[in-house]
Nucleic acid binder design. Sequence first.
DNA 1: TAGATTGTTAATCGATTAACAATC
DNA 2: TAGATTGTTAATCGATTAACAATC
Lengths: 212, 212
Amino acid sequence: MNYNDRKVPEVVIKRLPRYYRYLGELLKQDIHRISSNALSEKMKVTASQIRQDFNYFGGFGQQGYGYNVEYLHNEIGTILGLKEGYKTIIVGAGYLGHALATHEGFERRGFHLCAIFDNSPDKIGKEINGRAVRDVSEMEKYVKDNGIEIAILTLPRANVEETAEKLADWGIQGFWNFSYAELKLKKDVAVENVHLSDSLMTLAYKIKQGND
Amino acid sequence: MNYNDRKVPEVVIKRLPRYYRYLGELLKQDIHRISSNALSEKMKVTASQIRQDFNYFGGFGQQGYGYNVEYLHNEIGTILGLKEGYKTIIVGAGYLGHALATHEGFERRGFHLCAIFDNSPDKIGKEINGRAVRDVSEMEKYVKDNGIEIAILTLPRANVEETAEKLADWGIQGFWNFSYAELKLKKDVAVENVHLSDSLMTLAYKIKQGND
DNA sequence: TAGATTGTTAATCGATTAACAATC
DNA sequence: TAGATTGTTAATCGATTAACAATC
């Protein structure tokens, strides 16, 4: 699991993408060296937490020097699995599917979008970002033949559960689920649920607090 | 802040939308009464946590009976601020803006979408869900005249910071930000950042773990 | 070498779980 | 009344912060 088998807490994992993001920013600004203290100021967390977090994976710094930004960025990318180059499909070619298909940061993070599927005759055959939308009836063969690993689910709620179970049977290892339902699958596959409504409700609460 | 001024921890707030979601489901299934124990099984959390969470707001149950689902659902909705009917605009009429504009759960959670803005001549005037896309040059007047409270930011990263600062000056109280940048504004307004890339990276990590 | 800053242990803080008296 | 289940206090667990020795 990591260099010394301490279990990495969920909260730490959740912070890794944010570190990755900030380190990427630093690189863009041509900053190649940073101390936990300087980084903590930028990110509004404690330096202690930063050092503690990195140490779950073995420590990437050097006493008296700090961290090499490029190296650290790269290591975190590796830990997150961004070098794996996962083969991905999008299921559901609505506006959201469209938005994700044209999402720039996608390929950059090692996700290779192979195909887009839909069941509506209006959409099948139309091009999205240079790719023709395929008929879901061809999906089983495509997924199996091409060894697809990740499915992005942007289809209507009613069909999600059933579609995902099938996809898992055909070999999909991870789901990025945007439908309202909380996906719970029989097979033990990775699921990341994106609940936009939850996020919106959190915003509503924050505004209400501010107005008190 | 709440019925006895204990500060509600951030983690509790984050769980409220999920409770709200599950309670809504129960109502759909015509279940009108539930114990913390039964709910805990469905939601895969401890009954203790559920009771503890609700008690930050004063306790909504009855000994020997449990919770009235409708009442509880309603109360959590109120706590979250879903009854406020916030006036909302979308800034950026790309695919993501489009997706959110047609998002069904939107109005249902008390957000009233008033207008959509873009700066591209290609998009201005086009209809989205029955609303003409407006020119951003009219945005200041529109926001001020109509007392808009929330702005959903689905515009390119490069323009986000500047646009958001202006909007805050014009009276916007909350931002739902989808751009890659982490919004930090001078004014003290509510910001909910949605980092789709972070979510995707978390998925990548989970898959990698599963494969180990 | 002296100064800086990490890696890591120890102390603190907060959140979760357990337990049970209150009460419907 | 007896049984059920909450509201709430106390115990436990885990995460964050502080401190400092190791070392570049």
